[in-house]
Design a protein around this nucleic acid. Structure first.
Lengths: 205, 205
DNA sequence: ATGCACACGTGACAC
DNA sequence: TGTGTCACGTGTGCA
């Protein structure tokens, strides 16, 4: 990284360079030695210095500097800001688009799977009492599927009461309140897995 | 949107304001009326004007301006640039991360599906000659699956030669060169769909 | 020599 | 009253 040119500097400050060519000339003309200083002099010097410091700081922040002129520093900063703004815009656009396509792709994949393999079985199990469960099952409708689903549950040791089956197109939602009659299994998640396996078996055959 | 304060302006240019307090004083002192103008005067005016224009342009580009001071314009621009830079960084990071998680999620979903339903059947069909096809099938390995796959193909009217079956764990890759003996179906994609349906039927039962 | 960029000191002006 | 910001014209050095 090399700077294109020498920057402006304040190193001449209070050097004995004939600054502004002002004081000295006046001295020559008037023949006086009265060194008048404006009360503004020092604050103004500080102001200029601070401004230049800020300018250098800005220059440090902006890459691809062409020249070290005050004007070009600002101009380059302007183009750089524009660049950054468009970058931010395009990036957030990409992000949103990607989010959308992501969701869409997942949806497409789900549809594709349903199309190929039928509805993905869904099982919720909630333990109500010590021996009581609430179960919700959604699986693909199939000929004789309901009895095929109920049979193994009896085998496992579940006693169903208050079972509601709402027939919908393609899907078979079942909610049931279950009394666990003879079974050591009481952990909801475990029961859920077992039911899922049963349903998959039915759905495959 | 309201500007916080009056901007600096160049409207005083060439007004009869005792600029710099310089010329007039000199006139008073020397008693002459010679209106000396530095050759630098006009270019310097233009330079200042351009610089201020740039400064205003910069100010226009930066939101959340606190004051209209030259220094604050630059300072605000600096903080704004920093802000934009961090924005760009975080956005591109998010983008990359999202890309990664996206791919990962799809992969997870695929694995999940394979775990639940077995390998997704994959069929490629390429027509070589008028009655010759090249077929590649990858499906889940199953007991008696191969013969179950071959039978219906004979029924459809395919005559298999140069069939290669490479047994792999879980998967059953089959590549085959097929002579279409008695069948009106010659469109590759159509054949592909039929084969897929057959495989799905096998995989379900 | 010609133009350009700069720092300088100053008066004016606003708050 | 001061305190801060500005535009101005200028002299200087650099390319």
């Amino acid at each position: 990284m090399e700077f294109p040119s020498t920057p402006f500097d304040d190193s001449n400050i209070s050097k004995e360079r004939e600054v502004g060519g002002r004081i000295d000339k006046r001295k020559q003309i008037e023949g006086e030695v009265k060194e008048y200083k404006s009360k503004n002099l020092i604050p103004e010097r500080n102001r200029r210095q601070k401004l230049n410091e800020r300018l250098l700081e800005l220059r440090l922040l902006v890459p691809n500097i062409t020249k070290m002129t005050k004007e070009t520093i600002i101009t380059d900063a302007i183009t750089y800001i524009r660049e950054l703004q468009t970058n931010v815009n395009s990036l957030s656009e990409q992000l949103l688009e990607m989010e959308a396509t992501h969701a869409e792709e997942l949806e497409t994949k789900n549809e594709e799977i349903i199309d190929k393999w039928g509805i993905q079985p869904e099982v919720q199990v909630a333990q109500i009492g010590t021996t009581k469960l609430w179960i919700k099952i959604v699986c693909q409708k199939k000929r004789g599927g309901f009895t095929k689903l109920m049979e193994p549950m009896n085998v496992i040791g579940f006693d169903l009461n208050d079972t509601s089956v709402t027939a919908s197109k393609g899907a078979l939602p079942v909610t049931s309140s279950v009394e666990v009659v003879r079974s050591g299994i009481t952990e909801a998640n475990q029961i859920r897995e077992i039911l899922l396996e049963i349903i998959r078996g039915i759905q495959r055959n």
